[in-house]
Design a binder for these strands. Structure first.
Lengths: 137, 137
DNA sequence: CCGTTTCAGCTACATCTGTAGTTGAATAGT
DNA sequence: ACTATTCAACTACAGATGTAGCTGAAACGG
């Protein structure tokens, strides 16, 4: 029941999130490297990426060290955590905080293959099993 | 594989989405009614709500008709649809478009009760069954 | 050595967002 | 009829966002 008592990091904007994800994928990287690792079709100027990385650093999502003359960035918060927060906010906003309706939406609104369904069923079954062992986090 | 070819409505901001959801809940409503229907603890000035409703109207998410001197608003796009778009964007942004990882995240990261798990399993099973009937959309 | 590239660190700037105030007309209360 | 209330329509405005340009120093190619 961890309510919202602790002052959080400011939320990430879309673009910032995009960059953060690329950085997570690379582990460590300079602005240049992040720029080059952008997904096909997504063009951003080097200096734009620089800006986002700075903003990420101000918001304390990444830190940097100087290596030679260039800054090497890396995440300073676990992706897991960032994603969880983002998902929570999203669920709160669109589904009044209820996860199940979102899952329902995701699963029913087309686009989930037979294999994926099977995988999800597995997952759920394993969660159900896990719940029997009163597994207190 | 409906790519992004058709010019879409501009995306909704958080506050706009909030208001849209209230309006959907009411079906039809004036700015005053929406203001009063805000969830407990969420205070917004009447004129703020008015502003959001106008913005929603400009973005073509709602339409209005004059009844007496007051505007009565109602959604002009199916919530279903708006939610789908929002979810799609979100999934694209945080999970590279893959729904399954999001579902995984939602289901595993605590907070889903035994009953809900059962419900979801049902849902998935029914989807699996449904897939056997080559149910072409 | 000297031009070219490439950084970090600033600055810029149009939009969008969150939130509300102002004004003039219509209406309701008395 | 006068006043208080309530709208729609417009204005306001600071802060966030998306995106990039400029500057001076450092390093690199030849």
């Amino acid at each position: 029941m961890e309510s919202k008592l602790l002052a959080k990091r400011p939320v990430l904007s879309k673009s910032e999130m995009e960059i953060a994800r690329v950085l997570w994928g690379l582990g460590e990287a300079t602005a240049r490297e992040v720029t080059e690792a952008l997904p096909k079709g997504r063009k951003l100027d080097f200096s734009t990426v620089q800006t986002y990385l700075s903003r990420l650093e101000n918001k304390s999502y990444v830190k940097s060290k100087l290596v030679g003359r260039a800054k090497v960035y890396r995440g300073s918060v676990k992706p897991q955590q960032v994603v969880r927060e983002a998902v929570d906010d999203f669920v709160k906003l669109l589904f009044g905080g209820e996860k199940v309706p979102l899952v329902r939406h995701l699963v029913s609104e087309a686009g989930v293959s037979k294999e994926e369904l099977a995988e999800l069923r597995e997952l759920i079954e394993s969660m159900e099993r896990e719940q029997d062992n009163v597994d207190i986090d």
